[in-house]
Write a protein that binds this DNA or RNA. Structure first.
Length: 585
RNA sequence: GCGCCCGUAGCUCAGUAGGAUAGAGCACCAGAUUCCUAAUCUGGGGGUCGCAGGUUCGAAUCCUGCCGGGCGCGCCA
């Protein structure tokens, strides 16, 4: 059920008819022909640019084509009026019966409304969160976490087979630092005095205290005076495992569950990075060269030109060729990440989406270049950058400092306002725009708060349905709402509400094809607004109230109408994994 | 210096696979409640879509150049 596609097909049929009749050339390319609601509602319910798009291809003036086409379209069922406007727009006005039928079809679609098999079973890999396993998640992580999770759900609903993946950076210097910080906590747990510089360049957060204590319980004094080489591996492994478990708990609190955690360390140990390197060598994608220092910026203190193995990233659209090994011979982060994406490709993913923080923006080109290289251009990578979250409380910034180890954790925020609120608010801005998250405002019960506004519409509908059941028993029983006569829905506000619901497949389509789930949040706010409007008309004019005690037929039709609205809201919230509320008192 | 992102109403932001007179919320002003939740709704004022060119039937949207802001720029991830 998608009225835009239906109407497009009608336009297409009539163009073909005109071709058949010799009025237009045959075999016209319809690319670019759109049927969409005009920006200005006074132009009608729907408009098509067909005449203007086809003018050149058909060798006729746009207004002439429009007039021909308008004559045909006016005879079609459901189209009440047609007019040609401006440079050649064809505006369509649809009859109440058309909208009533549309509502019946929305109701019949049920939970499948708006879903269609766009993906056709194609595999998509969505990598998100991928925070370093060095501590709990903070609020900033929530953005990409929710974004990735909802995008995955959206793709799944549209027929893709989605794998949700978390890349664990457990091989670099940061987890080495983590191990040393944990060692300090271990000493502390044994009653040793910590030096003032114990956590210099390390992780001073309290969350490592229990990790040190657990190691003290298990190993006692065994490693207290031992050289680093004796305890390092043990401590690092334990620390990483502890942090991952912490992170999994945080994700769980947000309702996020990945299908796969991929370990960077394992990738290295299994030789996959080495294999990638050899593969590149064999394809002449690696050469010995010297990298120039970055221009316009003082070079790093220890800069020295050094011949090294460089990956020909510039052959795949990057700006410079990139080193894969550090001077100590270990792999760069980029090298392991290439191997990781190669691994994804070999697992059958030709469609990859990475969700990163905006501060990694400078990394996009080289990663896309890498994916091109490892897949010989068979796979494509879309990188979605999530901008920062500004946490505020009543408009005042909440201080966050990672260095001091005092930062607001994701868990703190979820505990304070609830996971549903966090999930919804994170999608109320486009991913690449900064987002303000105000702890006070997001729990406010007012129109300022989009979560509330949408939830309130749902709660109001559920409340009306409950009351109707109590006051007019039997009305919503049996075949309801399939058996309802919807032709009594004729008020402009009622029809507007149906029109708004007809926009759902369009909203979901644009959200999935642009990989921008925030569009659904905006849609839901618009749908809620159309509903609240109708509700208030009932306050002014009793004849428009949903429950008319002495008129079963009208009541049933209106209940079917708002029941469908509740259904669409709950579908939208369902993609967000937000629970629609039954009442708000 | 180079690359990426951004610049839309007083504020916060939608809208950018080109569509008609550019939207919403907040704030401001004026209204609506014997009645399904006024936690809502209605109306009003408010704009050189950063600037300047270009592409065409048509540009906030595409191209070029500037201006302004953010992020990034071997051996962190």
């Amino acid at each position: 059920m998608n009225i835009f596609k239906d109407l497009f097909n009608i336009v297409k049929e009539e163009i073909e008819h005109l071709s058949g009749a010799g009025e237009l050339p045959g075999g016209l390319d319809l690319a670019g022909v759109l049927v969409e609601p005009p920006r200005d509602p006074s132009h009608g319910d729907m408009a098509t640019n067909a005449a203007m798009v086809l003018a050149k291809r058909a060798g006729k003036a746009p207004r002439d084509i429009a007039t021909l086409l308008a004559g045909r379209l006016g005879a079609r069922d459901g189209i009440a009026a047609v007019d040609v406007a401006g440079p050649g727009f064809i505006n369509l006005r649809l009859s109440p019966a058309y909208w009533q039928t549309a509502l019946a079809r929305i109701i019949a679609s049920g939970e499948r409304y708006g879903a269609f098999d766009l993906g056709k079973g194609q595999k998509v890999n969505v990598e998100y969160v991928s925070a370093n396993p060095t501590g709990p998640l903070h609020v900033g992580h929530a953005r990409g976490t929710v974004f990735g999770d909802v995008l995955a759900a959206l793709l799944e609903r549209m027929g893709y087979v989605v794998t949700r993946e978390y890349y664990v950076n457990d091989a670099g210097a940061q987890v080495d630092t983590l191990a040393r910080s944990v060692y300090q906590r271990y000493l502390e747990a044994l009653g040793r005095e910590l030096g003032p510089d114990a956590f210099d360049e390390g992780y001073p957060g309290d969350y490592l205290v229990p990790v040190g204590q657990a190691l003290a319980r298990e190993h006692g004094e065994k490693f207290a005076d031992a050289p680093e080489s004796e305890w390092f591996e043990t401590f690092r492994a334990f620390a990483v495992e502890s942090m991952l478990s912490l992170i999994r708990d945080d994700l769980d609190a947000l309702g996020v569950h990945h299908d796969l955690f991929s370990s960077e360390k394992k990738l290295v140990e299994d030789g996959q990075v080495q294999n990638t390197f050899i593969d590149f060598q064999s394809r002449d994608l690696i050469y010995e060269g010297v990298l120039e220092p970055p221009k316009g910026k003082p070079p790093p203190d220890d800069w020295e030109p050094r011949p090294q193995n460089l990956f020909r990233a510039t052959s795949f659209g990057d700006e410079v060729d990139r080193p894969l090994k550090k001077s100590d011979g270990s792999w760069t982060y980029f090298a392991t990440d290439i191997a990781y994406h190669r691994d994804k490709f070999e697992r059958g993913f030709h469609d990859m989406i990475d969700v990163w923080g905006a501060d990694h923006g400078g990394y996009v080109k080289r990663m896309k270049a890498a994916v091109s290289a490892v897949s010989s251009d068979k796979a494509k990578l879309d990188v979605k950058l999530c901008n920062m979250v500004k946490l505020t409380q009543g408009g005042k910034p909440v201080a966050m400092s990672k260095r001091s180890g005092q930062f607001v954790t994701l868990r703190d925020v979820v505990d304070e306002v609830g996971k549903d609120v966090v999930r919804f608010i994170m999608l109320t801005r486009k991913n690449d725009a900064p987002l303000e998250f105000d702890l006070a405002r997001v729990v406010e019960q007012s129109k300022d708060n989009p979560v509330f506004y949408v939830q309130y519409a749902h709660a109001r509908i559920r409340s009306v349905l409950r009351r109707a059941e109590a006051e007019m028993p039997g009305l919503v029983a049996g075949d309801f709402p399939a058996n309802v006569n919807l032709s009594v829905l004729t008020d402009a506000a009622e029809l507007d509400l149906i029109k708004s619901m007809c926009g759902w497949p369009r909203a979901i389509d644009s959200a999935v094809s642009s990989h921008e789930p925030h569009r659904l949040a905006f849609y839901l706010q618009e749908l809620a607004a159309a509903f609240h409007l109708l509700w208030n008309k009932g306050n002014e004019d009793h004849a428009l109230r949903f429950i008319i005690a002495e008129n079963d037929q009208v009541t049933a039709a209106r209940l079917a109408l708002i029941g469908a609205v509740a259904q669409v809201i709950s579908l939208g919230l369902g993609i967000f994994a937000v629970q629609p509320v039954e009442e708000m008192r």
